[in-house]
Design a protein around this nucleic acid. Structure first.
Lengths: 169, 169
DNA sequence: CTGGGGTGCGACAATTTGCCACATGTTCAA
DNA sequence: TTGAACATGTGGCAAATTGTCGCACCCCAG
């Protein structure tokens, strides 16, 4: 399968690209800038599109890509998910939506359009907390003080949480 | 606008129905059982469908309703929200997806297809924890031990949380 | 330059958790 | 009927987390 990875993080593109090639796919990578051109040349069957990128938002890119390769399966990827953005993505034309961290298996499944996740695993309490926290933090433009106020916890506590989880991921 | 409310909670149907009628809509309500038949007779333009119902899941009902009234706008409603279920709903044919608690304004907006969004109050961390906890607990048939295991916390801690929050709320 | 915000961090008391134990219930199958 | 397996309610305690203050430093509009 011809897959195009669009993400401004080159390390991520490389890592994921390697994994997908091992599985027998033909992979190309691109930053948001080159995305449109690259898509035109490469004519991928599947596209993995990062939602949050410095330059143009993945959401803006989506319609353009869909026009260039109408048959391609487009999957949005984002660091933290919210239902609102997921719906937004799907409405705009995405076929699926994933949140990081997503392993190569999940990504491949989504790109293939294979049904995944029959059983919706119940996330742990910590997991839920972490996701909500990340989402809110992003909404606040990484403003820790404001985030803490919104979440109703002390800034110090937020700092500690942030300092603790990140490493293990 | 002709609106059909499908939810097994009659109180909820009544309350919401009243609000929507005040806004000048023609509203009918139905339980999951009667949903299909009711839909056939009423021929609504919009349908609000509860995702989680005792009998048949809203998800199962969705395709049937869509067939009966192809032009209707179908909005899923659920007590908790997860990206996975939201996508599932949209993939199955829903036009939008809301999570309780949703006020009449939000619901009306969604049913009308108007862009809503804008001010989605950020829930506090405690609030998120509480909701996820309640939802999981319900999934486990109020089995505290199992819930605690799923959530990755100690049974004792869960008990204490349950004992603490309820009163104020 | 000054005040208002934001960030990072140390310290300490107040809470909350994790964990074990024990006494009852319930349920199901031998 | 009896026993094993599992659920629930509680008590107790050490360990971990949180809430709060305080202080130093940055940055930026006034």
């Amino acid at each position: 399968m011809k897959i195009l990875l669009i993400d401004d993080d080159s390390v991520f593109r490389e890592t994921l690209g390697r994994s997908l090639r091992k599985r027998g796919h033909e992979v190309a990578g691109a930053e948001s800038q080159e995305a449109v051109a690259c898509c035109r040349h490469f004519q991928p069957e599947s596209i993995l599109l990062d939602l949050k990128m410095p330059g143009e938002s993945g959401l803006a890119l989506l319609p353009q890509l869909a026009e260039i390769v109408p048959g391609a399966r487009i999957v949005m990827l984002t660091g933290y998910g919210s239902i609102a953005t997921a719906l937004e993505a799907v409405r705009t034309g995405a076929h699926d939506y994933l949140t990081k961290p997503a392993d190569a298996d999940q990504i491949e499944a989504a790109l293939s359009g294979r049904a995944r996740n029959a059983g919706i695993a119940v996330p742990s309490l910590d997991r839920v907390e972490w996701e909500h926290l990340q989402r809110t933090l992003a909404d606040c433009g990484n403003n820790i003080s404001r985030t803490a106020r919104l979440l109703g916890i002390d800034r110090r506590s937020l700092q500690r949480k942030l300092a603790k989880y990140p490493p293990p991921r």
